[in-house]
Simulated assay, not measured.
Amino acid sequence: MSTLAGLDHGWLVGAEPQIMDSTAFQQKFGVAPIPIETTLSQTLEWYRGFLATLAKS
C-alpha cells in the first residue's frame, strides 16, 4: 500500500486513465478550459511567492 503525506493512495494502483468530456459544462456556463501552460505558470508563480513569504518570516 503506497502512501503520500500520510494519505492512503492504494486505490491508484492499477487505475485506468479517465477522460472527462466537459462540453456540456462549457456550453451551460460559457467557460473554456485554461491551457495547461497558463495553469502551470500561474501555479509556479504563486508557489514562488508563497516560498518567498515563508523565507522572510
Rank of each mutant, 00 (worst) to 15 (best):
49 G>H: 00
34 I>M: 13
11 W>E: 07
4 L>M: 09
15 A>P: 06
45 E>L: 04
21 D>I: 03
21 D>W: 00
26 Q>R: 12
38 T>E: 15
36 I>H: 13
50 F>W: 05
49 G>Q: 00
8 D>T: 06
25 F>Y: 11
3 T>C: 09
9 H>E: 10
51 L>C: 07
8 D>E: 13
54 L>N: 04
41 S>V: 05
51 L>S: 03
32 A>Y: 02
30 G>Y: 03
37 E>I: 07
56 K>F: 00
35 P>L: 05
6 G>Y: 02
21 D>N: 05
25 F>A: 09
38 T>Q: 13
38 T>H: 07
18 Q>F: 15
25 F>G: 06
33 P>S: 10
20 M>A: 14
27 Q>K: 14
48 R>A: 14
16 E>P: 03
49 G>N: 01
55 A>K: 04
18 Q>W: 14
19 I>K: 12
13 V>W: 08
9 H>M: 11
34 I>D: 03
45 E>M: 03
29 F>D: 06
45 E>H: 06
16 E>D: 05
9 H>Y: 15
14 G>V: 01
3 T>L: 09
34 I>N: 07
16 E>F: 02
19 I>W: 12
31 V>M: 06
43 T>Y: 11
35 P>N: 04
49 G>P: 00
44 L>V: 12
11 W>K: 09
14 G>S: 02
27 Q>R: 13
14 G>F: 00
51 L>V: 06
45 E>G: 02
52 A>V: 04
5 A>E: 08
36 I>D: 09
52 A>H: 06
17 P>W: 14
52 A>C: 03
50 F>H: 05
41 S>C: 06
32 A>F: 03
8 D>N: 15
7 L>G: 04
40 L>F: 15
20 M>N: 12
54 L>F: 01
1 M>C: 09
6 G>P: 01
6 G>E: 02
57 S>W: 15
22 S>V: 15
51 L>H: 04
48 R>E: 05
39 T>W: 13
57 S>T: 15
25 F>R: 07
56 K>T: 13
